[in-house]
Simulated assay, not measured.
Amino acid sequence: MKPYIERASAAGLEWVKSSYSGNNGNCVEVASLPGGGRALRDSKNPGGPTLTMSIAGFDAFVRSVVDGDLNQP
C-alpha cells in the first residue's frame, strides 16, 4: 500500500468528517479504502495528498490521539 494518494479527488472515496468538527475548516476527513485500510485528508484541501494506512495503523493512530501521545510539549 502506498503511504499516500497524490490526488484524493480522483480516488472516488466516500469521505467522512467527525461530528465533533466545527465550522472553522480545520478538519481531518477519513475514508475506507476498497482493499481495506483508511485514508486521511485535510478538509481544506480535498484534492491534495492523502495519507493512507492499514486498519490496525489507523486504530493505533486514533488511540495515540485520544491518549494525548501526539501532543506537542
Rank of each mutant, 00 (worst) to 15 (best):
N24M: 07
S19T: 14
G35R: 08
A39V: 03
G36M: 11
Y20D: 08
Y20E: 13
R41W: 13
N45V: 14
G25K: 09
G22Y: 06
G35C: 02
P34Q: 11
D42L: 14
E29G: 04
P34D: 08
K44E: 09
D42W: 14
A39R: 03
G36R: 08
P34V: 09
G35W: 01
K17G: 00
S43E: 15
Y20C: 04
G37C: 06
N24A: 10
R41H: 11
P34I: 08
G47A: 15
V28S: 04
S43T: 15
S19V: 11
N24F: 05
G47F: 06
P46R: 13
S43Y: 15
A39T: 05
A31M: 10
D42E: 08
C27E: 00
G35E: 14
S32V: 10
C27D: 00
R41A: 08
N26K: 03
L33G: 03
S21C: 08
N24H: 09
L33N: 04
N45M: 14
P46N: 12
D42F: 14
N45P: 04
K44M: 10
N24G: 10
A31D: 12
G37A: 03
P46A: 11
A39C: 10
K17P: 00
V30E: 07
N26F: 08
N24R: 07
K44V: 11
Y20M: 10
N24D: 15
D42M: 09
R41F: 13
D42S: 13
N26D: 07
S21F: 05
G48Q: 01
R38W: 03
A31K: 05
S19Y: 04
R41C: 10
V28W: 04
N23P: 12
G25N: 03
S19E: 03
G47V: 06
C27R: 02
L33E: 00
G25W: 09
N45E: 11
P34L: 11
E29A: 08
N24E: 06
G22W: 06
G47L: 06
R38A: 13
G48A: 10
V28N: 01
S18V: 05
S18K: 01
V30Q: 04
L33W: 00
K17A: 02
P34E: 11
A39I: 11
G36D: 06
P34R: 13
G25L: 02
G22R: 11
G35P: 00
S18F: 01
R38I: 12
E29L: 11
K17D: 01
G35N: 10
N45G: 03
G47D: 15
G22C: 07
A31F: 05
N24L: 05
K44I: 13
S32E: 09
G25E: 00
V30W: 07
R38Y: 07
L33Y: 03
G25V: 01
G37E: 02
R38K: 15
A31I: 06
G35I: 00
A31V: 07
Y20R: 14
G22T: 14
V28K: 02
P34A: 13
A31Y: 09
S18L: 04
N26G: 01
N23G: 15
G47Q: 13
G22K: 02
